[in-house]
Simulated assay, not measured.
Amino acid sequence: MNSDVKIKCRNLWKIFGADPESFMQKYKGNPSPQDLSNEKYIGAVQDVSFDVHAGEILIIMGLSGSGKSTLIRCITRLNDPTTGKIDYEGKDLLEATAEELIELRRHKMGMVFQSFGLLPHRDVLSNVAFPLEVQGLKKPEREAKAREMIELVGLQGRESYFPRELSGGQQQRVGIARSLAVGPDVWFLDEPFSALDPLIRAEMQDEFIRLQKLLKKTIVFITHDFEEAVKLADRIGIMKDGRMVQLDTPEQIVLHPANEYVAEFSRNAPHERIVTVRAIMQPIEHEISAENGIDAGALIGKVAKKVLDASEPLPVIENEKVVGTVDRKAMMDSLFGQDE
């Protein structure tokens, strides 16, 4: 993951009520849950701070009403935060003018939402080209770019179809192609696959992974589905009651949940597809050979058979050096849980 920070959010609050600004001033910018309740305000986003790194997929998740969708709308300023700071490439978005925001959304930000939002009277080509038309590109140029995006998402041959002639998955591909047509630096997706049937949803997740390997976008993705999150994310932020309760890699969230709320999300998580050998290895007690070694970064599901078939602990290799060992018990505990 690139360490460059693309977006920096600090102390974001989004309060709904009679006079949110005065309310925040009264409590010096940090009201308690009891203060909110007493004065009948809703803290949809409460004192949230985090960074989004260039090239990463950051997934924000939580149950319905946790504040995840409000948060992404604050970052894009579809809803203005009540207080806080959003730094985008060194510029405070909360200080941006309406004209500057329009330019950012036209040229720097791509957005995909749960409702596909396609224009029913336009065909696929025209739908994908629409944001380029808004930018003022001439028809040959915007259609050439649109065809490129249509091919990228696997819809070539359907350029003249109308949305009503497409399946749900195909409609979402059109939405994805349209959002990518402007060449966005940052891609925001709010529950983009949740309206799809499970099989189509899995197909779209795989397509999303394929596109990210090609395009290497900076992505903020909202979901309520932990399985989807661990499949797609570099890091996951889990929200509850407007607050970010944990932000970490899928592996760390599964192995070290911050509280019972997070633990409940990850309780049935597929460890074999999340946990690496590095996380379960034991330290070296004496010098051993690297023969028959296992990569420290390998997922345990990929190497479980090799470890379970071995009569002795196997060396774990990182940067061509033995950094630990892994044995049958550690593998069994990680896959199936430790004995009570």
Rank of each mutant, 00 (worst) to 15 (best):
Q25W: 02
K8P: 06
L152K: 13
V182M: 13
V323H: 12
I253M: 04
L314M: 12
G301R: 10
F50N: 11
K8N: 15
H107S: 08
F336T: 11
S179E: 08
R210T: 09
R328V: 12
V322R: 05
E291L: 03
S289I: 01
E340M: 09
G324T: 13
T76G: 13
M332L: 14
E287H: 04
G157E: 06
K6H: 11
S179A: 15
Q252M: 10
S160D: 10
V128T: 09
E227F: 08
I15L: 04
L232M: 14
K217D: 10
K216F: 01
E264V: 00
L299S: 07
K321A: 05
L71D: 07
T83L: 06
P283I: 11
L36T: 11
V262N: 13
W187E: 10
E133H: 09
F162I: 08
D47F: 02
P257I: 00
E141M: 10
K138P: 01
I288K: 05
T83R: 02
R201K: 11
P163M: 14
F336A: 13
S167Y: 11
N38Y: 04
Y41V: 15
A296R: 05
P20H: 03
L137Y: 15
R106H: 05
E260T: 05
P184E: 13
A290H: 07
P140W: 05
A229Y: 10
K302Q: 14
Q156K: 15
D123Q: 12
Y88H: 05
M1N: 13
Q46F: 04
G169F: 05
V186T: 09
K213G: 04
M109D: 00
P20V: 03
L118Y: 07
K68Q: 09
G242R: 14
E291R: 14
E95L: 07
Q252F: 00
E191C: 13
N127W: 10
V220G: 08
Q252N: 11
M331F: 02
Q114K: 06
L63Q: 13
